[in-house]
Write a protein that binds this DNA or RNA. Sequence first.
DNA 1: CATATTATGTTGACAGTGTCAAGTTAAGAG
DNA 2: CTCTTAACTTGACACTGTCAACATAATATG
Lengths: 217, 217
Amino acid sequence: MPPSATTSAKPKRKPKLKSYHHGDLRAALIDSAGIELELHGLEAFSMRGVAKRAGVSHAAPAHHFEDTNGLLTALAAQGFKDFVAAQIKREKKAANDPHSQLIASGLAYIEFAINKPALYRLMFSSKRPDHSNDELLTPSKAAFQKLVRQTYELTGIDPNEDGVAMLDVLAIWSMVHGLADLLNADRLKPLLGLSKAKREAALVHIIERALPDTASL
Amino acid sequence: MPPSATTSAKPKRKPKLKSYHHGDLRAALIDSAGIELELHGLEAFSMRGVAKRAGVSHAAPAHHFEDTNGLLTALAAQGFKDFVAAQIKREKKAANDPHSQLIASGLAYIEFAINKPALYRLMFSSKRPDHSNDELLTPSKAAFQKLVRQTYELTGIDPNEDGVAMLDVLAIWSMVHGLADLLNADRLKPLLGLSKAKREAALVHIIERALPDTASL
DNA sequence: CATATTATGTTGACAGTGTCAAGTTAAGAG
DNA sequence: CTCTTAACTTGACACTGTCAACATAATATG
């Protein structure tokens, strides 16, 4: 099953055969919004376009989302769940030591920024989603706490308890995020020219600079 | 003189006293656009709002900019000039060794992202400006080459000639940009709580992780 | 200086947007 | 089976960017 399957557990939406009520329009709108977003970009995103794609009238979404930004909030929330899922998927392919797991997590972060550029921008660089909304805040905090946990496993110090250890977290996050963001914005020409394998090899070297010194362990 | 003085050298624009022709509307529009941008944010930016602020009709700007994104392109270009100016200003207050100069440059980068949040986002995270336009490309490339030069001075190897040395540049840029971007997005709560002095002390430690090993020098 | 040209401004129109109000349909409660 | 209400449609409004048509004044030209 693809990660973005917003489909609810109850199979209520087979009857696509023209009925006044949709069945699960909310999920269908989020799906359509994801397609519209990657297709036309964040700047050209429109609620009416999403409604048209979902095959409903322009005002139908109002019954499921407060406004356009409300839909984008839900979409970003789903994005963070997919984001963490992609990280976990990539970690499984890596060696099982904390260092390798952290690197895998970082590479997945960067891969996400490249593969889903518009969604990434919505999640990390847009003010349109309501980042204080619980529906979004929960999965985004979960993504951050995942990094905290992985750093903890690497250093043996809990960053949530130790301010200096938290600086390790911020350093790793900033480095990975910086790489992801600049690649997303097409600004790292020297790296984008390389093959994926060579690019990731270079990325690993750079990310490792941000990792705390574990020689003493 | 404040950095953002878009005023042309020739003092053509004193006659604000209601004349059909403005004198230097192009510069006035860029100034107004900068104010509108920081006031209402990038998402709510509107050409008509800028025109109203400049005291002209809604269609007047069309004679000076191809479209709204054209105005944003010019604004971003001016932003990059101010950006480099802010870096230079901060470097002058720092010690004159390559390491200190690079740190000062990085802290100015981060300060800019915090002090001019909307302009920063326009320059680094928006697709509305035409980043391939020469008017914008020239100052943005200049900002990058400044970093290249400063890294060169630190390591003694020209990154434009040596691929490995270029990785140093990318690492430093990514780390500083990551910090700036996350602070801009209000995502580094542990750092934003601190006083400016304490915050910058922590930032220096983090940035230094990205710097190449110069112990061998 | 007088006139023609052109740059720079205005107004009005159009399609597209988000959002609201009012009406329609059908699902589910009683 | 009827009634309430959630889900959807249509139509309207204010706002946006952009275009076309027109007005004005700065400047080039005879």
